[in-house]
Design a protein around this nucleic acid. Sequence first.
DNA 1: CGCGAAGTTGACATCCGTCAACATGCGTGG
DNA 2: CCACGCATGTTGACGGATGTCAACTTCGCG
Lengths: 235, 235
Amino acid sequence: MFVNPHIGSPVTAKCCASISFKRSDIIYNQGDAADHWYEIVSGAVRTCFFNRRGQRQVTAFYYGGDVFGVDNCTYVESAEAITDLMVRAHRLCPDDADEICDASGIFRRALDLSRQRVVLLGRKTALQRVAAFILGLPSIGSDGNRRFLPMSRADIADHLCLTIHTVSRIISNLIRNGIIRIENKKFLVINSLEDMLDISGDEQIGAEEKYNTGIAIYNNVVNAQEYRKWIVHKS
Amino acid sequence: MFVNPHIGSPVTAKCCASISFKRSDIIYNQGDAADHWYEIVSGAVRTCFFNRRGQRQVTAFYYGGDVFGVDNCTYVESAEAITDLMVRAHRLCPDDADEICDASGIFRRALDLSRQRVVLLGRKTALQRVAAFILGLPSIGSDGNRRFLPMSRADIADHLCLTIHTVSRIISNLIRNGIIRIENKKFLVINSLEDMLDISGDEQIGAEEKYNTGIAIYNNVVNAQEYRKWIVHKS
DNA sequence: CGCGAAGTTGACATCCGTCAACATGCGTGG
DNA sequence: CCACGCATGTTGACGGATGTCAACTTCGCG
């Protein structure tokens, strides 16, 4: 069994232990035995998946209050600290999985996230991806438009499956157009939420007139009858 | 509660009922109450997800012996018959979920599938996607190289997030180069499995000399130390 | 035989990765 | 405190992959 050097093993208290990590510390590695799950007290984390060819995918970012590392038996991704980090580690035993209230619920959430990523990667342009990513950053303080941006361009690129060049160019463009601005490197302010929503392609139904402008729609809806039915069903 | 017109409700036998569908019949709709799961006796099924803009994603294909529709409460995708279809429908109640051996296991499998799709969409070219898709088709008979290809180009395109034009062009190219051939429209024969594996980018580690030829690798591995550790760990 | 759906193919435009150069920032040591 | 070097980020030029548009062919079905 893999022993996390930062925690030691076994953790005596069933519930939790507080641990701090430094920036770019590894919390656990892909392939390690999944013996703990984590709750972020402060800081930010990225989870990464490396495939056989060495391509890194940043599968998710987590911030204060989030939970990560709820894997089964073996971690399928590794987790690394993006900033200095404080977490509470919880023991994860196969036989007291009920400790985490609903195991299948957690997989379900992961599945939803993954499916969102499929939409993002399969159907969105680089500009739309970056905009959607920025909209998903955690808000800072009471102003909903100030966002925390702790990760590097490489992290963003590997999350959105783009190059750092493209990410950098797009962010520069958004700044040049006055839609966002950067404060102190690690904070991002959205000047025009409306523009961002518009660009990201995530705006609500009801703006049909925009559907065929600007951004390519290239789906091949075959069973349009069903699609119509569903739209009616939802609205 | 939604009543599937093909099944009626409630299904009296707890276990199952055999039902047949015609080509392009809808088995259930996205958003319907998830009251049954299905086992394919013969034929093929596609599951689709429609997003708010009406873009269709074909999330998976299922063939004889496969199980689909194991959702929780509400179907998140719709299921449609690709061919004439025979299934066995099983009642799915929240309280006897143990009937399906392990609910979280099924989510886990769906999650793995979805993560594979993320790799495919984020990191593969159109040619690689089509090749990987063909390799994933079910074999027919004892010859592992004869595959069943029941779905339309539009289905394939919406599954791989490409256009039908690109799919068509790539398949034509593979045929022209003698790597595959089509028999009777609905069957595909792989002439050179080696070439297909090579093209798909799914070949095993150990062919490092190929890593930098032909196909772009554009990941931004930051924590290379960790990556090395993991590779060692796996091999 | 005729018609609509599905598939194929070519010309062209555009997005974004590649390559290259340079700027900026940060940490370390003198 | 400054100098240096490395990591990170920015920007431009260019090309290739793939979407778009259009025309045509093939197929299935009545």
